[in-house]
Structures are given as C-alpha cells and as structure tokens.
C-alpha cells in the first residue's frame, strides 16, 4: 500500500479510511464521526473477559489466548474479577452445584455486560443431556445469553468467529439516542 505516489495522495487529500467503515474519514489529525458509532467502535474493540473456564472448552479458550490464535489482537484481556469484566465466556458443563455461583457472578458484573455460551454443554447440556442427573441443560436457563458457539469443543477459530459476531451485535447498539429509550435496541 505504501508506494511513494500513494503517500503523497494521503498527505494532501481527504480520503475514505476503509470501504467497510464508510462513516469515518479523516485528514491527518482529524476524525469526523457520529458519537454513537464512535462509542460502539470503542466498546467492541476492548472487551475484557472474565476468566471463567469450567471444563474441556476452557483449554480451547486458553489456546485461543495463547500465541497461535491470539485473542489479544481483538482487545480481549483476561481479568479475574467480575467487577472489571465486560464479557463472560461460559466454557464447559454447568452443573447444579455450580449454577447458583454463576448467577451470583453474572449479577456482580456491571452493565453493559455480555455472555458468550461456548461449546455444546453450555448451550444445551451436550453429551450429558440424557442421563445427567446433576447437569443443567444449558446455561440459558439461568442467565441471558448473547452468542452461542457450537462444537465439542469448538475450534479456536470458531470461538473467534463467535467473538466477531458479538462485536457485530455491539455495533448496532445506541447508547445516546434517547435518554429514556432502552439501552439495547433489540
């Protein structure tokens, strides 16, 4: 991209930044955009996750955070405390003994908060749906879920796809539109 002719063009003209984000355009030093879209872009690009691995899917989540399929380039950092986290990735089987603790953790996170349900066990009980007397068949029986990622366990690329879907969902939210409106437009 950086040949000498194109560099001259950049310095002298106003050009479109990226064909997808049509609403940002800049001269060097100045960005003009709508406030809502700027805030959505800032919020979706730095989602801090709560370290919450339960079972086998937690190992794939750790692999996603490691260097091969990096999570950090999307702005996702693991934080141990729910007060400092934005997104909770429920990875693994939810049992009845653990269900009340998940509810407490979800209520301790501060708004706006999101939940990704990773793997087959958190979505619907997984391979333990038939005779599991101690397995909760799906984490959406106790907390509201935004994105479901299927797989047993899902590949790291599938989890990154789930994160990008969540980012697309956050893009469409309006924080400032009307003070009395509901925060999420869905």
């Amino acid at each position: 991209m950086n040949t000498i002719n194109e560099k001259d063009n950049l310095l002298n003209n106003k050009i479109e930044y990226n064909s997808k984000d049509k609403n940002f355009y800049f001269e060097p030093g100045v960005i003009i955009a709508k406030a809502d879209e700027l805030f959505s872009w800032a919020r979706k690009s730095s989602l801090w996750q709560l370290t919450f691995g339960l079972a086998c899917c937690a190992i794939e989540m750790m692999s996603t955070s490691a260097s091969n399929y990096d999570f950090d380039r999307f702005g996702v950092i693991p934080r141990p405390s729910p007060r400092q986290a934005d997104v909770m990735i429920v990875s693994g089987t939810v049992t009845l003994k653990m269900a009340s603790r998940i509810k407490i953790l979800y209520e301790q996170m501060s708004e706006p908060k999101y939940v990704i349900s990773m793997g087959s066990c958190a979505t619907c009980g997984g391979p333990y749906w038939q005779h599991g007397y101690h397995v909760l068949k799906g984490v959406d029986r106790i907390i509201p879920v935004d994105v479901y990622v299927p797989g047993c366990p899902p590949r790291p690329e599938a989890l990154l796809d789930g994160l990008i879907t969540l980012q697309k969902k956050i893009e469409k939210e309006y924080l400032l539109k009307e003070k009395n409106d509901n925060k999420r437009n869905i």
């Binding site: 009845l96 009980g125 007397y133 909760l136 029986r141 106790i142």
Partner: peptide, 15 residues
C-alpha cells in the same frame, strides 16, 4: 432404582 428428580432448588433437571 434411582429416579432423576424433576426440580432441584427451582432448577429444572430433565431436558
């Protein structure tokens, strides 16, 4: 002869 109960503390157990 164990039978899976329906509810445990307001959580529904069967699928």
């Amino acid at each position: 002869d164990f039978i899976t109960p329906e509810y445990y503390n307001d959580l529904k157990i069967p699928y």
